[in-house]
Design a protein around this nucleic acid. Structure first.
Lengths: 198, 198, 198, 198
DNA sequence: AATGAATGAGGGTTCATTCAT
DNA sequence: GATGAATGAACCCTCATTCAT
């Protein structure tokens, strides 16, 4: 109850610090100062600096994962609309949580093998799910025939880059709408201005 | 002469170490061991660990930058072919230099404000150039009308992701050809299997 | 009344902890867990961890001291029997209280100057009393002429070692009887198998 | 060579500190101050505070062990003389190295399970060897029939106590000669002033 | 130029003790 | 009396950098 609240305060303070300074540059001193607590209190709630970091990461990845619903046929929404809804939910989640997003994009890779593994798994699953969706779409004629895994990488990479621009570099000119519309438009129709032979 | 050779040996050793372990996890001890030199010798050639890292980064970014030629009209090659040539050169450069590539993708962001600034500049310039190319293409009717900066982010993000998969995760199933063809195919024509209204 | 009982519970729990893990390795957390009380409660009954330790030590030393009666002449028991009775009482006390015994043998020296001083005083008094008894015995011809303090050290050292074997190393093959008989036999008659010149 | 010398300097400084203040109370700061070196230098030669302690202990136990020669029959020296020589060598070694001796007697037990095990083994071997010697002596009629292990404990305990008095409590009134003569005299002939029935 | 022993600032973690409820 | 969350001084160890040889 109250203890949970204190825990969340520390988590929030740590998230801000990690986002602002990065993992290595943020000292436990920064976190406890930001949280307004004593050194010992920090260790009352978390085993170590690394554990806090991991928990922030985990929670955010889970949260993001929950925004992505598997696309189903025959429902009220068309596959394209379902996809758009997925994109919108994830974009909103990231825009609403810039600090953990920045941590994931910026700081998480290369810190330690376990964390790397966790991130890799998350990303692999994401690619896998996307590739499967593309494959289904191909069977239904909704998606052109391409290598689904390469396609998944392209989709996620494009998406990731737009989010990084917005979150890490703080380029807020890149609006929610521009991201969603641009992504869907380009990825669906391509850049080519006129039919390309091939 | 000989001194220049020694310098390059250290640089090479450091590149391997940074690629394998990341910036923070590689100690100066690792570098000098890999280079087969004494501790003091390292500091004869480089001011600090950070300076070596910066130099590796710089050299690679310059090298990559050199592979990208501005697309010109009216030459021997069509704009599309020039673009393809650009993509191929960059892909080859990255595939041939996996260690510095891994460093750039994995480790470079968040280390320190100066390095971040440098990376950001590099990336900004890349986006800028890409966006300008897209704009030109739009004027010529070669490229569909879209927000050129968003388009540039999508292109670079898609590209980056494919290279990360190959370099960082060591997924060598993603061949040079698959990258180039997949990227050009999808980005030019889009995923949509049939004309999309709108 | 009830308060006294709670105090004793804490004392007992602390004794077990100190005996099992040693002074430095037992944390206040161990004691309160063993006692089934809250952290603050511990400090209602004792000023500090060290004070508890001191109290355990004191009580045991007093208790041991009470088992040793000054040997008197002309009573119902011979001096030898009085000595034997002393030895038996102390052995029994130690065997019945292995935990505080282990603490005294194992942990008490070197912790802090005050405790050291207290132990030293106790031991000095023990040696003094033993030496005086030996001196008296010498005057009466019951004890051979030797340096009484050296003699006292030998007696107490031999005794101590047997008790340590039993208590600290848990060597229960060393029975009460073996200790008492062995000690009296050897110390009275010596190891020599045949009269030794000198 | 020079490095070995520095190592020994640190070892010597640490030995003094441990002897003076005890293991827990001596900080690495104390050792480096005593050795006149910087903090990092300490860790250049030893992994940790505990490792230095262990090394001091080990070296001293080995050294002591080397002073004790197995008693042999039929040589130039009688068994009694060999025993006396053993006692004299060990007493001299301890008197000449009061600091490590104090550490072994005072500080070593209860620090950590591994160290405890090592000390216990050393002591067990000592008791074993002594018990075997006593057994042999009994067969030859040189030693009266008693439980050899109890006898060994008595001998070692008596010896230990005399050395503790001298080393730990700094009681230099207990001279080398008094220790050797007192020990041999009492242990061989016993305290009894006149034949004791039994 | 090369060496490697020496340096010491810096930071994460522990745990006995306190105090508001 | 009892509780347990909060405190913060204390201390060990790391590692980039220096400098005498």
């Amino acid at each position: 109850m109250k203890s949970q609240k204190r825990r969340n305060e520390i988590l929030a303070a740590a998230t801000e610090c990690f986002a602002k300074r990065g993992y290595h540059a943020t000292q436990v001193s920064d976190i406890i100062e930001a949280a307004g607590i004593a050194r010992g209190t920090f260790y009352l709630y978390f085993e170590s600096k690394e554990v806090v970091f991991r928990e922030i990461l985990d929670a955010f990845l889970v949260h993001i994962g929950e925004q992505i619903k598997t696309i189903k046929l025959g429902g009220a929404l068309s596959p394209a609309d379902q996809m758009r809804a997925n994109v919108e939910r994830v974009v909103d989640t990231i825009i609403d949580n810039p600090a953990p997003a920045k941590i994931v994009f910026n700081e998480a890779v290369g810190l330690n093998p376990e964390i790397d593994e966790k991130l890799r798994e998350f990303y692999d699953r994401l690619i896998e799910r996307t590739a499967i969706s593309l494959s289904k779409g191909m069977k239904l004629g909704l998606v052109r025939k391409t290598d689904p895994r390469i396609g998944a990488c392209i989709i996620l990479g494009a998406f990731r880059e737009l989010m990084v621009q917005r979150t890490v570099f703080g380029n807020s000119k890149i609006s929610r709408k521009a991201i969603v519309e641009g992504l869907l438009d380009v990825l669906l129709r391509g850049f080519a201005g006129m039919p390309v032979a091939g």
